[in-house]
């Protein structure tokens, strides 16, 4: 006899992106952050942790090319206690670990919920990758794609799955636009053309309001998740 996994919880680990934990409680919302190398994913994660840690129970999973670099950054910055930060080894392919074979990441989020839970939110950060990397729906409930103005103002126009389909597109380092000759208005127009109604946030973490808009978006996701 085969048991119906959608409605029963046999054994300790859920077999998919099931919204409930084995004990029947609702699991944490999982938000993925991807984007090219150096666009500010880790800095955004750090800023989000600082903005949200007083009001939410948070944890972070990093997927680095080299095991612990991003995790070490977050630890140094002391954005969260160390037990709330887990690094996943990706065998040199972060995009495989967040999209094609999500097992190690699922294990990491489950372990975090078991060990430091209950959690409201888990941020899953991908290692710097190219424009095609997206998170599996089996791993995250929503994803943020982070690009920056210094990477070239034609990235929104070029599109690619991250830019086109991410639930939120963040254009980072807007403070650098005058120095690198990036045209923010053009980036906004191109993003609109690629993404239709999907939201875009322009942010600079070096000046006010910093990560505020992204944090507000995360809060809205969480409200919807809990509804």
């Amino acid at each position: 006899m085969h048991l119906d996994h959608a409605h029963t919880h046999n054994g300790p680990s859920a077999v998919s992106a099931d919204a409930h934990r084995p004990d029947g409680s609702r699991r944490a919302l999982r938000i993925g952050l991807g984007g090219p190398v150096g666009s500010g994913k880790t800095a955004t994660v750090a800023a989000l942790c600082r903005a949200l840690r007083e009001e939410l129970s948070l944890a972070v999973v990093t997927n680095d090319i080299y095991t612990r670099e991003d995790a070490e950054f977050l630890l140094r910055e002391a954005v969260l206690p160390p037990e709330r930060i887990t690094a996943v080894e990706t065998g040199a392919c972060p995009h495989t670990a967040i999209r094609d074979d999500i097992s190690a990441n699922l294990e990491a989020v489950e372990d975090l919920e078991d060990e430091v839970g209950p959690l409201d939110l888990i941020l899953v950060e991908s290692g710097g990758d190219n424009l095609t990397a997206t998170f599996s729906k089996g791993l995250v409930d929503a994803q943020i794609f982070v690009i920056d103005v210094a990477g070239g103002d034609d990235i929104p126009r070029k599109g690619g799955p991250g830019v086109t389909t991410a639930d939120l597109l963040v254009v980072n380092k807007t403070d650098l636009a005058p120095y690198v000759g990036s045209d923010l208005a053009r980036m906004a127009a191109d993003a609109k053309a690629q993404r239709a109604e999907l939201p875009v946030v322009f942010q600079s973490l070096r000046s006010e309001p910093g990560v505020r808009d992204v944090a507000d978006w995360v809060r809205a996701q969480l409200t919807a998740w809990r509804a």
Binding site: T90, G91, C93, T96, D101, I102, S103, E107
Partner: peptide, 9 residues
Amino acid sequence: RFPAGGHAH
């Protein structure tokens, strides 16, 4: 490609 984590080992 069977998604069982082997790629990272």
